[in-house]
Simulated assay, not measured.
Amino acid sequence: MCSYKKYRQLALGMALALLQGFAHATSFVDVLDQPAKASALAVSSPLLGVARAGERLVAVGQRGHILYSDDGGKDWQQAAVPVSADLNAVSFPSAAQGWAVGNDGVVLHSSDAGETWTRQLDGRQIGALLVEHYGALARAEPANEQWATLAADGQRLTEEGADKPLLDVWFANEKTGYVVGAFNLILRTDDGGHHWTPFQDRTDNPQGLHLNAIASTGDALYIVGEQGLLLKWDDPGQRFVALDSPYQGSFFGAVGRPGEVLVYGLRGHVFRSLDGGSSWTPLKTGLQVSISTATVDAKGRYLLFSQAGQMLVHVDGARLTLVPQQNLSPSAGAIKAPDGSLVLVGSRGARVLNVK
């Protein structure tokens, strides 16, 4: 049987624990409302995407970090960002105008080449956006069950909260662009992000698979996703149509030029098409680790990088060459710098790679 003193100590301990829990709960700030913290270590923190803004490089990563470099990736400055959500991708269709996307459905915009950013959209708004858009279509066409289903999906997103990530962003120009993400989440803007239109009904993805990346080859626009999902923009039909896929594992990206596209993904799988995605040829990599990013270097070669940091070079045909490197580092993004060198971003931040 407890003494009064022990009982009082126990009660006091429980009260203190409750007060600490309450203080912790009241001090919680949503990452969508917490600006990214300035940090001298941001350049060596995980970065997930990189883009060219004219002669400037802009990289995005965890905790809302956005960095920019004016000397080809040697030195970086941290941008002012209004959120601390993890950021997954960035796109600059011009030297000044850019967009970044990330977790919690966040869409950020910069009009000064990446130095400062404002929030255009987040996951707390996306569900309501779907409900409004597809609800109006359902009322106009009550016999069309698709509209009611998509409106219900929007309601579910609203109830679940802002937890659905946007995984990639691509803009054709300063007005028209797309953001894509988990569970077939896709939105389009035609006014620079002031308004967004849900595009689920214009995407051949009935299973609601994740849309991992969107990329242009100059004459075609592709989306790649999980379980072998490959989509291509059909301008006459104004929709993304499904392509026959050569692989049933996830694809993580696409890279190409007019008349040619490479898609890459799980377990070292890379495929090449010269006919707009009608047929695909496998490119042997000799790797079992996933290919995570790719770019085109100053010589016009495709450079592909694995999640373990290995680099593959594709010049022509069905041959991929593994280039030995020292100090392998996982890569999440790659881009050609203005001076022709290569800048990689990944789990250890940003680094410059001189490719021969």
Score class of each variant (00 low, 15 high):
residue 172 A to V: 12
residue 173 N to T: 05
residue 175 K to S: 14
residue 176 T to A: 13
residue 177 G to K: 01
residue 177 G to M: 06
residue 177 G to W: 10
residue 178 Y to T: 02
residue 179 V to E: 03
residue 179 V to N: 02
residue 181 G to F: 10
residue 181 G to T: 07
residue 181 G to Q: 09
residue 181 G to N: 08
residue 182 A to M: 14
residue 182 A to I: 08
residue 183 F to P: 01
residue 183 F to E: 13
residue 185 L to V: 06
residue 186 I to D: 02
residue 187 L to I: 10
residue 189 T to V: 08
residue 190 D to T: 15
residue 190 D to P: 01
residue 191 D to E: 05
residue 191 D to Q: 03
residue 191 D to R: 01
residue 193 G to P: 05
residue 194 H to V: 12
residue 195 H to A: 14
residue 195 H to L: 03
residue 196 W to V: 01
residue 197 T to G: 01
residue 197 T to I: 15
residue 198 P to S: 08
residue 198 P to L: 12
residue 200 Q to C: 02
residue 201 D to Y: 07
residue 201 D to P: 03
residue 201 D to H: 15
residue 201 D to N: 14
residue 202 R to I: 04
residue 202 R to Y: 04
residue 203 T to V: 14
residue 204 D to E: 15
residue 204 D to F: 04
residue 205 N to M: 12
residue 206 P to S: 12
residue 206 P to Q: 10
residue 210 H to M: 09
residue 210 H to K: 10
residue 211 L to W: 02
residue 213 A to R: 02
residue 213 A to Y: 01
residue 214 I to L: 02
residue 214 I to D: 00
residue 215 A to I: 04
residue 216 S to T: 14
residue 217 T to N: 09
residue 217 T to Y: 12
residue 217 T to D: 08
residue 218 G to M: 08
residue 220 A to I: 04
residue 220 A to H: 07
residue 221 L to A: 05
residue 221 L to V: 11
residue 221 L to G: 03
residue 222 Y to M: 05
residue 222 Y to K: 08
residue 224 V to N: 01
residue 225 G to T: 04
residue 225 G to A: 06
residue 226 E to G: 09
residue 226 E to V: 08
residue 227 Q to P: 00
residue 228 G to A: 05
residue 231 L to I: 04
residue 231 L to S: 06
residue 232 K to N: 02
residue 233 W to R: 13
residue 233 W to T: 01
residue 234 D to F: 06
residue 236 P to N: 10
residue 237 G to S: 13
residue 238 Q to D: 15
residue 238 Q to T: 10
residue 239 R to H: 14
residue 239 R to T: 04
residue 239 R to D: 07
residue 240 F to G: 02
residue 240 F to R: 04
residue 241 V to M: 13
residue 242 A to C: 03
residue 243 L to H: 06
residue 244 D to H: 12
residue 244 D to T: 14
residue 245 S to T: 15
residue 247 Y to R: 06
residue 248 Q to R: 14
residue 248 Q to G: 11
residue 249 G to E: 13
residue 249 G to C: 06
residue 251 F to H: 08
residue 251 F to M: 08
residue 251 F to L: 10
residue 253 G to H: 08
residue 253 G to D: 05
residue 253 G to R: 05
residue 254 A to H: 05
residue 254 A to L: 12
residue 254 A to G: 09
residue 255 V to R: 13
residue 255 V to Q: 14
residue 255 V to M: 06
residue 256 G to Q: 11
residue 256 G to C: 11
residue 256 G to V: 13
residue 259 G to M: 13
residue 260 E to T: 11
residue 261 V to W: 12
residue 261 V to L: 11
